[in-house]
Every structure is written in C-alpha cells, then in structure tokens.
Design a protein around this nucleic acid. Sequence first.
RNA 1: GUGGCUGUAGCUCAAUGGCAGAGUGCUUGACUGUGGAUCAAGAUGUUGCGGGUUCGACCCCCGUCAGCCACCCCA
Length: 424
Amino acid sequence: MKNIIQAVKGTREFYPAEMALRNWMYAKIKAVSQSFGYQEYDGPFLESIELYAAKSGEELVKEQSFVFPDRGGNLITLRPELTPSLARMVAQKQNQLVYPLRWWSFGPFWRYEKPQKGRTREFFQWNIDLIGVDCPEGDAELVAIAADFFKAVDLSSSEVKILVNDRRLMDKQLIKLGVTSVDQKKAMLGIIDRRDKLNEKDWEVYVLESGFSQAQLDGLKAVLNDKELYKTSPEMMRFFNALESMGVADYVDYDPRIVRGLDYYTGIVFEARDVGESSRAILGGGHYGNLVEDVGGTSLAGVGFAMGDVVLPLILEQFGKLPELPLNPAEVLVTVFDADCQVYSLSIATALRAANINVLVYPEAAKIGKQFKFADRVGVCYVIVAGPDERDQKILQVKDMRSGEQTSVKIGDLVDVIKKLMLP
RNA sequence: GUGGCUGUAGCUCAAUGGCAGAGUGCUUGACUGUGGAUCAAGAUGUUGCGGGUUCGACCCCCGUCAGCCACCCCA
C-alpha cells in the first residue's frame, strides 16, 4: 500500500457505493428539474480566465481557481462556477432562444480551497436557472423546486429550511439608517452576513469599528430581529403567496439576516440550511437583474440557485436519510458446480439474459459454499445451482437468499419462476 | 492563505523512550452439494513519508504529505 501515488488533494474517488449515491442524487435532481419543465444543458469544463475576470469584484475567482497555461500560453481555468458560462451561452444565442429559459445542469467544478469536511476541491453542482422573467412568482418557482427536491430526498420541513430575504427590501432599510454610499452598503451587507459567525458583543464592536454609529447599530439590530419585515414588501407578499399555492410554504422562512455574498443578486436571495445546530448551507441562490450584460448581451433578469453534492449526503446522514442503494445490478448468480458443468452454467445465464434478467456467473469452478458466500457478499438475491444431478434431470435449484428457501425448477420454467420471484 | 488537532493491520482504535497489540473483518477448517450463526486455527504492519536526538523512537525534535477543526471565503 505504500507506493501508491496519492490522488490529487481535494479530489474525490467514486467507488461503486459513492457512485450509486451520486447517480441517485442525479436522478432526483433530474426528476425535480424536469417536473417543472427545465431542460438540461452543460458548458465547457475548461474556460479562459477572462470569462471570470470579466465579472467585477471577483478577484477571488483567480485566487480560488485552478489556473494553468495551455501549450499556447493562454491561461485556462477549470470552471469554478457555471453562471458566467451560462451567461455567455445565452448571450451568444440571445435572439434565437425561446424565453423564458428554464435550464438546469449537473456537472463537475473545481475550486482551489483548503479541503475539509463538506468542502473539497473537486465537486459536482446542480445549477438551475429561470431566465427572462422578473416577477415574484418566478422567484417562487425556483424556491419551490428546491423544496420539492428536499421532499424527493425525504428531508422534511422540520429538518431543512429555505431562508429568504430581498436585497431591495434591505436596501430600503439601510437607506433609512443613513447607509447610502455603495461602499457603506457593501460593508453593511458584510456585517449582516457575519452576524451568525460572531457572538452579539463582538459583532456590535465590529459594527462600530466599521465606522457606523450607535444609532445605526440599534437600527440594524431592529431590522435583523424583525421577522415581519417582509410584510412591508408587496413583492415578498406575492412571493410567499405563490409558495403557499405550490404547497411548499412550510419549507420557507423569511430571514432578514440572509443577504448572500454575491454582488450580482439584485432581488430575492435565499439559502437552504439544515435545522441542526451545526447548520450547513445546502444550496444558495437569488434573483439577478442582468445576467448577460457583462459578457456582451442585453440585460436579462433571472433567478437561479446552485447546490453542491458534498454537503447534502452529510445532511442526509445526520437525519438518517441516506438511501440504501443496491450495489450490484445482477439479481441472479449462476454457480459453477465443477469444470464439466461450467459451459452448462454459461448457457443458463445466457438464457436468463435473453429474458432481460441481469445475471452474474461465477467465473470458475469452486466449492459451492464459497460461491454462496460470494453471492451473499455482493448482494445477489437468487442463486442457481446446476450440478450433474440437475443437468441429468433437466432441473435447477433456485435459492432465495433472503428467505433461504430453495426450490427445484424445471429448466423450461426457469425464466418464469425467476421473474415471478423478482416481482416486489 | 493563517492557526490548531490527528496519522499504528482492510476498518475502529490500544501500546511510561525498552519484544507491534485488541476488537472487527479476512483466509482455512469443523460442513464429502449451499451464504448469514457458532467454534477452532492462521495470515496480515516501511507505526503516512523524510531527516534528527538517543545505547534504543509508534512515543521526543524538525520538515513534509494527508485528513479533521477554527479562520478566510463561499460562485
């Protein structure tokens, strides 16, 4: 074991068990996305660094991305996010596409961060966007998709919550507090974002040290504690009303502390968290006013969110909701009694496969006990024994590994018997 | 990028600076044509890697790699 070259730091290896989970997540994501009529798409995994540099205020992209020169000396980036690629794809065909666009994607992304639990350098991410719509009901649709996804993976509204705020609503409150300049606003959003990370006293000191007055601090505290603030916003009332109609209101809470770090959000912002004390962010998104302007298109509003594949399994595990997935696609194992019977076993397996049954054949003659043990270990449900006695009598032994029951079956009845057993 | 904790058998973990261990799993047998259960026997280690201190290092020191935790950041 010592001379194995290590996998690249922060990358992930999907052994069959992990791959089964990833495919399970993908299937849930696909089903929910399609249930709202969204189309699957994807962008390149490699992009030039300019694509990300084009977005202002994103120096971090350069620092947190894998960047390397290609043979021509151009700087290539392993995509750290999908939104800029999406923006370009939309801009390139802006006049040919049918709006509103409903697009989703699930693919790999890379970020050069320090790996730890729930954070790797290589991860998969679900991105889903509704583009060309600028109304609270459109925003509500994305939140409903997130909630439906949680339902689909059996996470209840008491286990996860989608917390929502509106940047416009916060802007109004900040103006009331005399926070008017762009820099001040940015600082204030950072302060709000940090509220949960510091204890109250430290946070208050931090606010005052950031150049805000005691009056502003008091005002801010009042805003952040006002769970009813959304009622002053007609858009948010429409938004919550839409969620009610879609049957997911129990998953969604108004939370004035949610502001999200990203610059390009201009309306609704939201993030989903588990309700436990550790409370990790599972997904995040919001409404943006101009998706494609930065890459040369005309302004288009939209709303979307992204969910990584790393945190969700941790949350599922925490609530005991990890699915038990079958790891072996074969339902049947045909044993090989001895060398003389080997080709006979092969022909039986072939007949079963012809009837669309997945079959594993033991690869060589071995002690029958060893073969049963193998069947047990790989999770096969039915084992067929075809020894010399059976061959002479034109029968087979079929054993149900779960019940332990074994029956003799006429060779001509085998397919029917197996199919009947496999019915749920 | 900063700081801290950890790294020993496939896995979970022991071992005052003095012979490298347990549980579990694995292999084989009890069972000559049947898995799980029981019993018995057996195998398995570059103590992450590289240096140093020491008569002697899993243990102490330095470096390095990896994982975890807190920052930073969160697309």
